[in-house]
Design a protein around this nucleic acid. Structure first.
Lengths: 219, 219
DNA sequence: TTAAATTTTTAGATTTGTCTAAAATAATTT
DNA sequence: AAATTATTTTAGACAAATCTAAAAATTTAA
């Protein structure tokens, strides 16, 4: 289904809001997309006519099966682009959202498939949110701070909870980035420091405090 | 200046057409952007009011200084994305144009700067067209088939004039892609085959016929 | 259970980009 | 130079997405 940029934005917003409330109401959506209630009503009619929405006037609304599917496609594109912007272009986490809002509307299926492969089929975006797969399935991944991660298991770095330039320098020094593979080889009880292997580099030791800020999930 | 997608498409098209003719005329632009002459006139007025166009009714038109600058920005974005799609995502040359037409309208300056760095500041896109730099300057690069390239000089692969899958396999085998660095170490008079060094790989020998299809420019 | 307040929808206007059909201008031909 | 042809512009209409203001439905309160 071919959707306008505007329709896509509404669908994505409804999807987000209905995660929190059973039925979404007009005013809250209007506030969320920063427009008037009247505009929302107009769009609701349109989305209903496209059979993406369950909607009875005055009674609230919800995306139906088809609508959810569309939402997940858009979210997938958004999060893959965010991952790209951070992991490949080295942009900062707090700056990628706005750009991904634009990129997400480029809808070539082949593009997204190739991008996904290129990025190594990431499961989590730089904000720690899951990236739906091609079918719209969302992996149920528990993210753990690296110092709570199992020994001798491969993990993937999903996010980092400290965006200072000091942290960036450390990450850079160790060659750790979003999507890096990491494995704990040894844990020292004395101060909680960890011997780790990062991707294909030779093993090294990192401090407990550093590890606390690095989030990983099972590979 | 913030421009709509439509305005950007017109500007880009006028830029392209005025490379061939002194003054662009309404009908040819209409044919080029696949619309009516009336729509073109409407847009011309708009671009004139935005001071991007020299335009007198019934007399043809041209982008002015500011208009050309905008055009070059758009073209830069387009060609950088094409380069990305081919060199990083491994898409085929004939398929990237359409996607780049969409990506080019994402206008974050920081994005394009970072993308440019990430790609190694390429000078030529996968179709052999030059990529304007940040200032809008276009490098005057002569591209040469690899077998006509100087000995012991570093070249950058700009394009390949043969898009068969057989060619792709060869390129893949040798690790040659758009943007690869290449240097001729030795040329054998017997059959014109060349000993070359590709990026950081160890030297190897390629056939003259293969080299004829690989275009490079001075690094 | 009415009255008041809130929420949602409708009605009508606006902007952007497009269109068709007709009018105006320029170019070409006789 | 007048008539014909081609090109360009204007005039008016339309669709998408938005807005304001007013009406309708629902909810809350007295």
């Amino acid at each position: 289904m071919k959707l306008s940029e505007s329709e896509e934005n509404y669908i994505k917003s409804i999807y987000t809001l209905q995660a929190k409330t059973e039925k979404v109401n007009t005013n809250s959506l209007a506030a969320y997309v920063n427009t008037t209630a009247a505009s929302v009503t107009d769009m609701l009619k349109k989305l209903k006519s496209k059979k993406l929405l369950e909607y009875k006037r005055y009674y609230g609304f919800r995306l139906n099966e088809a609508g959810n599917k569309e939402a997940l496609k858009i979210i997938r594109r958004h999060r893959l682009w965010e991952f790209f912007l951070v992991s490949k272009l080295g942009m900062e986490w707090d700056k990628v959202h706005v750009i991904a809002e634009e990129l997400e509307h480029v809808s070539s299926i082949d593009l997204i498939k190739k991008l996904d492969q290129y990025l190594g089929q990431p499961k989590i975006d730089p904000h720690g949110d899951p990236i739906p797969d091609e079918k719209g399935d969302i992996a149920e991944l528990k993210q753990v701070a690296l110092n709570n991660f199992s020994l001798k298991k491969n993990g993937i770095v999903s996010s980092v909870s400290n965006q200072t330039s000091e942290m960036m320098k450390m990450l850079n020094h160790y060659g750790i980035g979003i999507g890096s593979q990491i494995r704990i080889l040894k844990s020292f009880d004395f101060d909680g420091s960890l011997q780790v292997k990062i991707s294909k580099q030779s093993a090294c030791v990192i401090s407990s405090g550093f590890a606390q800020n690095i989030f990983v999930y099972d590979d």
